[in-house]
Nucleic acid binder design. Structure first.
Length: 405
RNA sequence: GGGGGAAUUCCAGAGCGGCCAAAUGGGCCAGACUGUAAAUCUGGUGGCGAAGCCUUCGCAGGUUCGAAUCCUGCUUCCCCCA
């Protein structure tokens, strides 16, 4: 196996990486691998907890793909056993636990999604249940005896929870130990993950050293911020872009990302050369953002869909024209007490508002409109519903009426 | 095993007999401003074809003219001591 020169590899690996620990050993590992023609074993573990992967997950996954492109061996660990615990990293509370059935269903689904970013044919995929389910209690005791409580409490998240007197369960303490043991079982040279994984990564080195193995190097990506530009991208925060979303959904979300985050997104989510990125960022922000969106959307769909999504966004949202597909709301004459109904009632019947109270509020605040030309609906206005009538609440909710008898 | 504390509207968190559909902050929705981005500012944020009425403060009872607030039991959670 012929690998690119070490410096070249390092340059690619360092892109968008926050921390490499220990930094100085990486070049050495790469050199040994190049000299011997033996690929490095690069570990990335994922717990099949949720269902939908989002761009935040793809940051280490993309890093893995870069390693694959350099010729190294990807080892994907499906944490079907660690998922039963729940990763406490960066959390201020205990995670909900899953059943084995849920985990297995998620695992299959995850592999499917992973294949959008990684070349799974060239990757080793293993489940950590393979070794943990076979472990007996004595072996587990042996493993636990390698770690002290004081070590565990050096972790920020645990020590903070300890101080704040929120619960820390014993099984959570096992999580980093299990994750570290995975590294031993697969003989990892490198582990990929976010910066919050530091503790587990270091523990893996300790266990590997204890087993007289070569110690892994942690390559840690920064945490991707979500659409709000402040908090980490996460499903529970609702500020994410899922990799299974449609091109247009992605487009809409990308365009509402704060400008300040673009650089991070370019660096972590695309392969565009960084000097080219700087050039884009020096130009009009909207252009840069559109390029960003199209580049990433192309990865999950294709260039044609990306262009189409961008054009549609410009037409409907950027330009203020009529949306391309307008949902149709069917209302029945039977629901109407008379021909002309109060506007609030109509908005609720059309499904634009969840309650008449909400509809009243929207109207009162000038956020409800009628007709192709978006005439503002006045308070106390009554409307005679007609087929094809356009109704709006705010900028994003709209529909065309269909009146049935 | 013993002791202490807590459960409030989407979330966090006030309220501790009537002035409570319930402070404040976050989120969310709308308006203004913009590049229909973000930030900022303003308003809103249980339901009812809206007068007034109805349902909400862990669950079930009780005391009171009146209870989110007091009492009893139950459930769940947290902390401390052993």
């Amino acid at each position: 196996m012929q690998f690119p020169p070490v410096e070249e590899q390092l340059a690619l690996i360092r892109r968008g990486v926050e921390k490499i620990v220990p930094e100085n050993e990486l070049a050495e590992k790469l050199k040994q691998s190049r000299d011997s023609g033996k690929p490095l074993r690069v570990k990335y573990g994922i717990d099949p907890t949720g269902v939908d992967l989002h761009l935040g997950h793809t940051v280490p996954m993309r890093k893995m793909r870069q390693f694959q492109e350099l010729g190294h061996q990807a080892v994907i660990i499906i944490g079907n056993y660690t998922a039963l615990v729940g990763d406490p990293s960066g959390r201020d509370e205990t995670r909900a636990r899953l059943t084995a059935e849920q985990v297995e269903a998620n695992a299959v689904d995850y592999l499917n999604q992973l294949s959008k970013v990684l070349d799974l044919d060239k990757a080793e995929v293993v489940r950590n249940g393979d070794w943990f389910s076979a472990m007996n209690f004595a072996e587990m005791l042996e493993l636990c005896s390698k770690v002290t409580v004081a070590q565990l409490l050096t972790r920020d998240d645990f020590s903070q929870r300890f101080k704040e007197e929120t619960a820390i369960y014993l099984h959570e303490c096992l999580y980093p130990i299990m994750q570290a043991w995975d590294s031993v079982k697969i003989a990892a040279d490198i582990e990929l993950g976010g910066t919050e994984q530091l503790y587990s990564f270091m523990l893996a080195r300790d266990l590997q050293r204890d087993q007289k193995m070569s110690c892994q190097i942690g390559v840690m990506s920064p945490i991707l911020v979500g659409l709000d530009g402040i908090r980490r991208m996460g499903k529970s925060l609702g500020n994410y872009i899922g990799i299974g979303e449609s091109a247009y959904e992605m487009m809409k979300k990308f365009m509402q990302v704060p400008d300040d985050c673009m650089k991070m997104y370019f660096e972590l989510l695309t392969d565009l050369p960084l000097d080219q990125v700087d050039g884009l960022l020096a130009g009009h922000p909207k252009e840069a953002k559109t390029t960003l969106a199209k580049t990433i959307i192309t990865e999950y769909h294709d260039a044609a869909h990306a262009d189409e999504a961008a054009a549609r966004w410009q037409r409907e949202i950027g330009g203020g024209g009529l949306p391309a597909d307008i949902p149709v709301a069917t209302i029945s004459r039977a629901d109407l007490k008379e021909e002309a109904v109060p506007a609030a009632i109509l908005l609720k019947l059309a499904g634009l508002c969840q309650s008449t109270g909400e509809a009243r509020r929207s109207i009162k605040q000038g956020g409800a409109y009628i007709g192709e030309d978006k005439q503002r609906i006045e308070q106390d206005q009554t409307i005679t519903p007609e087929n094809g009538m356009m109704l709006w609440v705010g900028k994003k909710r709209f529909c065309r009426l269909e009146v049935s008898d």
